[in-house]
Design a protein around this nucleic acid. Structure first.
Lengths: 192, 192
DNA sequence: GTTTCCATGTAAATGGTTACATGATTGA
DNA sequence: TCAATCATGTAACCATTTACATGGAAAC
């Protein structure tokens, strides 16, 4: 939201790595980028069209062995300039939305049990995420020499690892806090 | 984005704490909620209108000592039901967008120096955020007994503290990584 | 024979930001 | 006197999601 058309820069950036179809770009985004910037087909294809119209990329139809024809896009000089101009700009503030915190904030209206369940679900989701980051990290460490791009990709995986760890640490601490400060009050009420 | 009308639930939730004007709600949101769910006037006022039309809140004009007249809103039974229905639902996946990671991911196109600066700026921004969370935490610890709402607010502040710490830890590790793996290669190039 | 994967898209709706508009009062 | 704060709002725009549409091929 807030800032303009970062979808376009994701496409341009990925096309500097290699020429791709929209479908391939989507797969690459899902795998490597979606955790910090997700996009859908409804954004991808219109943006590809827009980028081609403005001359930042060019698409060439290609026969595919399996499945329907594809359009393979490549980046132009104009597109490269657009991308490096953007890369030289300072980044905007990050944009986060945590529905779980909203619900926790008003947790007094639904009680401790509901809150505990909410945090436990959150915990389970992110244990998987953390494991995934750690396996990505291990994979990357063996291919560092091949390509400098891997080193930059590594930085984003490292970010993910730290964040997911923080989620889990918070969840532990939050659950302990609820046990100590909220459930004891419930017990007091019940025993009175 | 993605999910529907959480702005409405923020308003409803805050109105269970106390009756307020749109302006007051905005201040409360900026102070306590905006770090994990920010909203602007352009969203707030139309949502207030919508909530009043559907009967979830009612507004009463009031003279103000200083400045223009205010409209003080309070939540209705219908609004309370709407809120607790929402609170009983599981939360959606969190929604994050980090432009910095996008730019880092393509960092090979702009080089290590650019990347280092980017991370250092990020670091500075979040050192302040962390300090703020820690002062909120200290403030809250002295008023726990007064109101159970404070305990739930505390959980969100704790989340913020963990996240900002993770940001800073990552930044340290990332800078060390760049020094070791990227700058040394530059030096190699230069000395060859 | 059913699901998944390949592959490309469009349309409508929603959510959200930004810029604009107005105007009084208070404090530096 | 200038900036900030109080207070409410609208309109235009943009980004994003969701649902729809199509259809062949391969895998289970």
């Amino acid at each position: 939201m807030t800032q303009k058309n970062n979808t376009a820069y994701i496409i341009l950036g990925l096309l500097t790595h290699k020429d791709s179809s929209g479908y391939d770009l989507k797969k690459e985004i899902d795998l490597k980028i979606s955790r910090f910037w997700n996009i859908g087909y409804g954004q991808l294809y219109p943006t590809l069209k827009m980028l081609e119209e403005e001359g930042s990329i060019i698409g060439k139809p290609e026969k595919s062995e399996k499945g329907p024809d594809r359009i393979i896009y490549s980046i132009t000089e104009k597109g490269k300039k657009k991308l490096t101009d953007w890369l030289s700009l300072p980044n905007e503030k990050e944009y986060v939305r945590y529905e779980i915190l909203l619900k926790l904030f008003f947790g007094n209206l639904s009680g401790p049990t509901n809150t505990i369940q909410r945090i436990e679900t959150f915990q389970k989701q992110h244990q998987e995420d953390l494991q995934l980051m750690q396996s990505f990290k291990a994979d990357l460490e063996s291919v560092f020499q091949e390509n400098a791009d891997h080193l930059y990709y590594y930085l984003t995986v490292l970010f993910g690892e730290h964040i997911y760890k923080a989620y889990l640490d918070w969840a532990d601490e939050a659950l302990a806090f609820i046990n100590k400060n909220l459930l004891s009050e419930e017990n007091k009420k019940e025993s009175s």
